[in-house]
Amino acid sequence: MINFSNKKSNISSEVLFKMVWVSSFLAMIFVLPPLGLFLGIYFLTGELLIGAVIGFGVHFVILAFSGRISKFVTKLVS
């Protein structure tokens, strides 16, 4: 059975605002470069598979450094 605690925490609007901006920046950093590479390779060469492999590769390399990127973006927004 699921037990939901009745704890209510008050989150300030400043913390919520920073959380939304950091999450948005991280989403753009993780998605836009691999998507740009994928679409660029696909439209320039017509090779779907090569574009997909390079795009996924760049995406996972970026994900490997996600902790450092998150800390940097958090410092930048703060």
Rank of each mutant, 00 (worst) to 15 (best):
residue 12 S to M: 07
residue 51 G to R: 00
residue 51 G to V: 00
residue 49 L to G: 08
residue 34 P to W: 02
residue 47 E to F: 12
residue 68 R to G: 14
residue 63 L to F: 12
residue 44 L to R: 11
residue 11 I to V: 05
residue 52 A to T: 11
residue 75 K to H: 14
residue 78 S to F: 11
residue 39 L to T: 12
residue 70 S to E: 12
residue 69 I to Y: 03
residue 16 L to R: 03
residue 69 I to N: 00
residue 43 F to H: 13
residue 64 A to F: 11
residue 13 S to L: 15
residue 40 G to K: 02
residue 30 F to S: 10
residue 13 S to M: 12
residue 4 F to L: 13
residue 74 T to K: 06
residue 61 V to F: 09
residue 3 N to D: 14
residue 46 G to Y: 11
residue 5 S to C: 10
residue 18 K to M: 05
residue 61 V to Y: 07
residue 61 V to T: 07
residue 54 I to M: 09
residue 67 G to M: 08
residue 52 A to H: 07
residue 29 I to R: 02
residue 68 R to Y: 13
residue 40 G to P: 01
residue 67 G to L: 06
residue 26 L to T: 01
residue 74 T to E: 08
residue 77 V to D: 01
residue 31 V to F: 15
residue 5 S to Q: 06
residue 53 V to A: 09
residue 3 N to M: 12
residue 39 L to V: 15
residue 46 G to F: 11
residue 49 L to Y: 12
residue 66 S to G: 07
residue 62 I to S: 03
residue 40 G to H: 06
residue 76 L to T: 02
residue 53 V to W: 08
residue 34 P to A: 06
residue 45 T to F: 08
residue 18 K to E: 05
residue 11 I to D: 00
residue 61 V to C: 03
residue 22 V to C: 05
residue 25 F to P: 03
residue 46 G to E: 13
residue 60 F to G: 00
residue 24 S to P: 09
residue 41 I to K: 01
residue 30 F to T: 10
residue 65 F to G: 05
residue 59 H to V: 10
residue 39 L to W: 14
residue 36 G to F: 12
residue 65 F to L: 13
residue 26 L to R: 01
residue 31 V to Q: 10
residue 32 L to F: 10
residue 31 V to K: 07
residue 24 S to M: 15
residue 28 M to E: 13
residue 61 V to I: 14
residue 21 W to L: 15
residue 78 S to P: 07
residue 20 V to T: 06
residue 49 L to C: 09
residue 10 N to S: 10
residue 60 F to C: 00
residue 60 F to A: 01
residue 2 I to Y: 05
residue 60 F to D: 02
residue 25 F to N: 01
residue 49 L to A: 11
residue 16 L to G: 06
residue 23 S to Q: 06
residue 20 V to C: 06
residue 68 R to Q: 11
residue 12 S to R: 05
residue 60 F to H: 03
residue 58 V to Q: 03
residue 30 F to R: 10
residue 44 L to K: 13
residue 2 I to R: 06
residue 48 L to Q: 13
residue 53 V to R: 07
residue 50 I to Q: 15
residue 30 F to G: 10
residue 40 G to F: 09
residue 22 V to T: 04
residue 41 I to G: 02
residue 25 F to K: 04
residue 48 L to S: 08
residue 15 V to T: 10
residue 34 P to G: 01
residue 42 Y to L: 14
residue 17 F to E: 14
residue 64 A to R: 10
residue 41 I to E: 04
residue 60 F to T: 01
residue 77 V to C: 03
residue 12 S to I: 06
residue 50 I to S: 15
residue 31 V to C: 11
residue 67 G to Q: 03
residue 75 K to Q: 13
residue 54 I to V: 15
residue 31 V to P: 06
residue 25 F to C: 05
residue 22 V to E: 04
residue 32 L to K: 07
residue 68 R to S: 15
residue 30 F to I: 14
residue 37 L to T: 01
residue 64 A to D: 10
residue 37 L to N: 02
residue 43 F to W: 14
residue 15 V to N: 06
residue 21 W to V: 15
residue 18 K to G: 00
residue 67 G to E: 04
residue 23 S to C: 07
residue 17 F to Y: 14
residue 68 R to L: 14
residue 59 H to G: 11
residue 9 S to M: 13
residue 41 I to H: 00
residue 70 S to D: 14
residue 66 S to R: 12
residue 65 F to C: 09
